[in-house]
Structure formats: structure tokens, C-alpha cells
């Protein structure tokens, strides 16, 4: 017949009693059944701890967030085209954007190294501000990533995909030609629109 261990009938001193509670295997007074059960319980706790560890060993995935920031493009006019006292050749005035010091100059500023495209209308009207007379101006534009007009390239239809330099700058010179042979004297004005966009 099974009998419960006579656990409560022991008389032990207070310090030993404390040890028996804290360290069940320590005390010589601890009954064998209690030792066994404590051992099983400890093992089961370890098993639970192991399960907890597995539970927290999950799947991990990393996702990259990204964005490419491009600076807004600023276009600064350094100087306008200078027509004053230009020499005429049979009424024709020509300002070469690569060679002439009268060429207008602009600086485009954007993201360093970024590619961009320049578009402009080659033919524009200049209107006499005192009348209805119109001059047809043909623009010529050259550009260079360096601030050097003499090595700039004329921007034709096939070379308008350009690139900002390391400082985010691109230099533009504007010239053109106009025929004044039949133009009445007066003041003429018009606009030149040049568009720049990232590509």
C-alpha cells in the first residue's frame, strides 16, 4: 500500500528547513518522492523554456526603402544677348554662341551628375513695341559642363541629352541671327523660352 512520505513529521532546525525549501536536493531530510517530482518538474520547465526559445526563433525578412532625390532646376540669366552696335552684313546680324562675347549666358543648376534635356524653339518673333512690325530671330544655343564658352557645343536636335557637372551646374550661351534689312527703325522685343527637364 502506498504511503505518503512523512514529510511533516520531521523536526529540523530553522536554517535546515530553509535549505530544504530552497534546495530540495540539499537536505538529507527531503523525501525521495519529492526529489523525484522536483526533478521531473525541473525537466518539464526546461522543456517549456526550450519551446519558448523555438517559438521566438521566427522568420526574418528585410525590405529596402529607397528614394532618389533630385534638386529642382534653377536657370540663372548671367547676361542678355548684346545687340548694341553690332556690325551688319547686308542687314544680317549674327551672334555666334560659341565665339561671340555678345552671346547671352545662362547657368542651369540641378542635381550633380544628373542627366537632363534642353528644348527650345529655334524661331521666335521680335515685335516692334511701337508698331506691328515683326522680326524673325533664329536662336542658336551652345552648352558646356565647364564654364568655357569656346569649347561649348552647339545644341542641335541630336545632342540635347546633357549632364550636370559635379557642382550641379551646366553653362549655356545663347546667340542667333536676325535680318534687319527691311525692318523699320524702332525697339523690338521678344521672349526666348528654354525648357530643362531631368531624364
Amino acid at each position: 500500500m502506498f504511503q505518503y512520505p512523512r514529510l511533516i513529521n520531521f523536526t529540523i532546525s530553522e536554517p535546515e528547513k530553509t535549505k530544504a525549501i530552497i534546495y530540495p536536493f540539499y537536505s538529507e531530510y527531503t523525501c525521495p518522492m519529492l526529489k523525484y517530482l522536483t526533478f521531473v518538474f525541473t525537466i518539464s520547465l526546461l522543456h517549456t523554456a526550450n519551446s519558448f526559445a523555438q517559438q521566438n526563433t521566427g522568420q526574418r525578412v528585410s525590405v529596402t526603402i529607397s528614394a532618389e532625390i533630385i534638386s529642382s532646376i534653377d536657370l540663372i540669366t548671367v547676361r542678355p544677348i548684346d545687340f548694341s552696335n553690332t556690325g551688319r552684313n547686308d542687314g544680317q546680324i549674327t551672334i555666334n554662341p560659341v565665339l561671340s562675347g555678345r552671346a547671352g549666358k545662362m547657368i542651369a543648376q540641378g542635381t550633380p551628375g544628373a542627366s537632363f534635356r534642353i528644348t527650345f524653339l529655334r524661331q521666335r518673333d521680335l515685335v516692334n513695341i511701337d508698331g506691328d512690325n515683326v522680326l524673325f530671330f533664329s536662336y542658336m544655343v551652345s552648352g558646356n559642363a565647364e564654364d568655357d564658352q569656346s569649347t561649348s557645343e552647339l545644341l542641335e536636335d541630336d545632342n540635347r541629352a546633357l549632364q550636370f557637372n559635379e557642382s550641379g551646374q551646366f553653362f549655356i550661351w545663347v546667340g542667333g541671327d536676325v535680318n534687319l534689312q527691311s525692318a523699320p527703325p524702332g525697339n523690338y522685343e521678344g521672349e526666348f523660352t528654354l525648357e530643362i527637364e531631368y531624364i
Partner: peptide, 10 residues
């Protein structure tokens, strides 16, 4: 201007 990145961990 330039390329901006960071990482999301799941």
C-alpha cells in the same frame, strides 16, 4: 540630391 535608403526589418 542623391540616393536615399534605409531598411525595414520584418
Amino acid at each position: 540630391g542623391g540616393i536615399y535608403t534605409n531598411t525595414i526589418n520584418v
